[in-house]
């Protein structure tokens, strides 16, 4: 365990150092993040007139969902996206060999190898939006609420991670998986809005097939103090299942790995 923590510290300090080689990137990423959030706020403001509610969600409550979405977007830019692209590159270049020959868990290495600080402003904006919107919606942020929200946030991060990692793992068979990541990203955009704004069929899809509901709606409900125990439990169970499945798929994929011929 100690060795994994030390390795993680090395991974991330090396990644930070590598990113610092390209300072112009920082400004561009920050601008992109601000633009993204402004766009989302604009679309939400079109849906919600003054005093209106949609799918049982008030404007401020819906902003909490958007806050969680922004937070997860930031996490994706910080960890999931950069690591996924590295996995694909490893498969294409055959350098996965080096990873597989290290005496460390390969899924650990591939999942946290790189760390891109450019998603951090997005994560901060997300947290800010959650707090402001929740307070304006009249939520009481007691310790119980905060703890529940934290657990559910961890669960949603685990679900999102598993989805990304499984797609990355399929690159062992398909080598090029960019189309799949685009489909995933555009579907996850659905998580910007409370799942109840969608028609029943889509709602079921986003709950049972692609668990978007667990990503943003369930944690937002927890912050607003109205999450049911059964939804929270379901969220944790789904997260655990996703992690187990991602691990199983990775082990299965490795059996097919014969590495790019040199």
């Amino acid at each position: 365990m100690h060795r994994y923590l030390r390795t993680l510290a090395r991974f991330w300090s090396a990644s930070l150092a590598a990113e610092m080689e390209y300072p112009a990137n920082f400004v561009l990423e920050l601008l992109a993040e601000v633009g993204n959030l402004a766009g989302s706020l604009f679309v939400l403001s079109l849906l919600y007139g003054p005093g209106q509610s949609l799918g049982g969600w008030s404007w401020n409550a819906a902003l909490v969902v958007l806050g969680f979405y922004t937070l997860l977007e930031g996490l994706t830019s910080t960890l999931f996206q950069p690591n996924l692209s590295t996995i694909v590159t490893h498969v294409q270049n055959g350098t996965l060999d080096f990873v597989l020959l290290k005496p460390i868990d390969s899924q650990f290495w591939l999942s946290v190898r790189t760390f891109s600080p450019w998603g951090l402003p997005g994560m901060a904006m997300g947290v800010g939006l959650i707090l402001v919107a929740a307070l304006r919606a009249g939520a009481v942020l007691g310790p119980g609420t905060v703890a529940a929200a934290a657990v559910l946030l961890l669960a949603s991060a685990a679900i999102l991670y598993s989805l990304w990692f499984v797609i990355a793992a399929t690159s062992i068979w398909f080598v090029k998986v960019w189309n799949a990541t685009e489909v995933l990203r555009s579907t996850l955009v659905a998580g910007r809005y409370p799942v109840s704004v969608y028609p029943a069929g889509l709602r079921a899809f986003f709950t049972f097939v692609l668990p978007v509901a667990f990503l943003t709606t369930v944690p937002a409900e927890a912050v607003l103090g109205r999450a049911s125990g059964s939804w929270m439990a379901a969220s944790v169970v789904v997260a655990a299942a996703c992690l187990v499945i991602s691990r199983a798929i990775w082990r299965y994929a490795l059996r097919f790995y014969t590495s790019a011929s040199s």
Binding site: F11, T95, W109
Partner: peptide, 20 residues
């Protein structure tokens, strides 16, 4: 094929390996 991190001095890659 190379395992060294392209944008960093070799020393950083060595430290990663040492930790692993």
């Amino acid at each position: 094929k190379q395992q060294l991190i392209w944008d960093l001095p070799p020393l950083d890659s060595f430290r990663v390996n040492a930790a692993v």
